[in-house]
Write a protein that binds this DNA or RNA. Structure first.
Lengths: 153, 153
DNA sequence: GTCGATGCAAACTCTTTGCATCAGC
DNA sequence: GCTGATGCAAAGAGTTTGCATCGAC
C-alpha cells in the first residue's frame, strides 16, 4: 500500500466514523508513515512536530489508537512498559516479533502457523481469537562469537 | 514441585548468589506460592503483608526479579502496562497465554511448536532464542451466544 | 561489625484526562 | 454555530530509587 493510498484510507476512516480531518491528525499520520522502523509515541511526537509544531503529546496519544483501529498502524508490545508502533504496509497479523536483547532491534518475521493455533484454541477453550502475538527474545550469535552485533546502533 | 521444595530452592538460590534470607523475602515467597491464579505486584504485596506486615512495596518489587531469575516465578506480560506473575510449578517455557477479553481470565495452554519455531529463528536471523511468548486475545463464545461468560468474576 | 536489605517517600516513565479554547464541517 | 478536537498542565498507574536505618551472616 502506497503512502497516498494509506492517507486516503485514513481520511475515509475518519469520515466514516464522523471524526474530523485536522491538520494535527494529518501531520501525525505523515510522521508515522515516514518511519521505516518501529517507533514510540514520543518519537512520533518529535517527527510530527517537525511537520506541524502545534502537535501536542496528548493529540499523538489520542490519534494513535485511531490509526491502530483503522489498521494503518500496528501496535507492537514487547513487554517493556513501552509500546512500539509500526506503519502497517501489508495487512498480515500472522507475524512474530524477534527482539535482539543485545541491540534491541525488532525483527518481524512470518509465523503462519499462528492461525492454525488460534483455531486450536477455539476448540479447546471455547474462545474466538481476536489478536495473536508471538515474541521471541534472543541473543545475537555474532556478538558472542566476534564481539560485534551488526545490528547494534 | 512442592512448596517445600520450592522454598528450599529459593533459599539455596539466595545463598548461592550471596543474598540474604530475610523475613520479608520469605514472606513474599510464601505469599507468591499461596496463589493459584496469576497475581500482580500489588496483590502480592497485600498477601505478603498478611504474613508479615513489615513488608514494603519496594521489597516486593525488589524480590520479584530474584524469584523470576531463580525460575520460581514466571512473569507474564499481557500487554497492559501491568505485569502478572505466576508461581512456577513445572518448568515448561513452551506455554501460551490465552486471555479472555470479556472476563480478563488468563489461560495457560501448551504450545510445544514454539521450540521448533525458536530453532527456525536461529537459522534465519543468527539469533539464539532465550524466551518466547505467545499470547492470544480472544472473545468468549458462550458470552456471545448466551449472554454469560462462565469465567466472569 | 560489616555490608547487604529494608521502609519510606519522592522521583520517574509512560499515558490519560479535565477544561477552556479552537476549528472542521 | 455546533460539536468535536486541541493544547496545556495536572493527574494517574505502575515501578524504581536515594537515603538513613536495620539486621543477617
Amino acid at each position: 500500500m502506497s503512502n497516498e493510498a494509506a492517507r486516503d484510507k485514513f481520511q475515509n476512516y475518519l469520515a466514516k466514523k464522523g471524526l474530523r480531518v485536522t491538520e494535527q491528525r494529518l501531520a501525525i499520520f505523515e510522521a508515522a508513515f515516514g518511519q521505516k522502523e518501529h517507533f514510540t509515541a514520543e518519537e512520533l511526537l518529535d517527527h510530527a512536530r517537525a511537520i506541524d509544531d502545534s502537535v501536542s503529546r496528548a493529540t499523538v496519544y489520542r490519534t494513535l489508537p485511531i490509526m491502530v483501529e483503522a489498521s494503518l498502524v500496528r501496535e507492537v508490545d514487547i513487554g517493556k512498559n513501552l509500546k512500539y508502533y509500526l506503519p502497517n504496509a501489508e495487512n498480515n497479523p500472522q507475524v512474530a516479533q524477534v527482539i535482539c536483547m543485545d541491540c534491541d532491534k525488532i525483527f518481524e518475521i512470518a509465523a503462519p502457523f499462528m492461525e492454525w493455533y488460534g483455531n486450536s484454541v477455539s476448540t479447546k477453550l471455547g474462545l474466538t481469537p481476536v489478536t495473536q502475538r508471538l515474541q521471541v527474545n534472543a541473543h545475537c550469535n555474532a556478538l558472542k562469537q566476534t564481539g560485534t552485533c551488526k545490528n547494534r546502533s
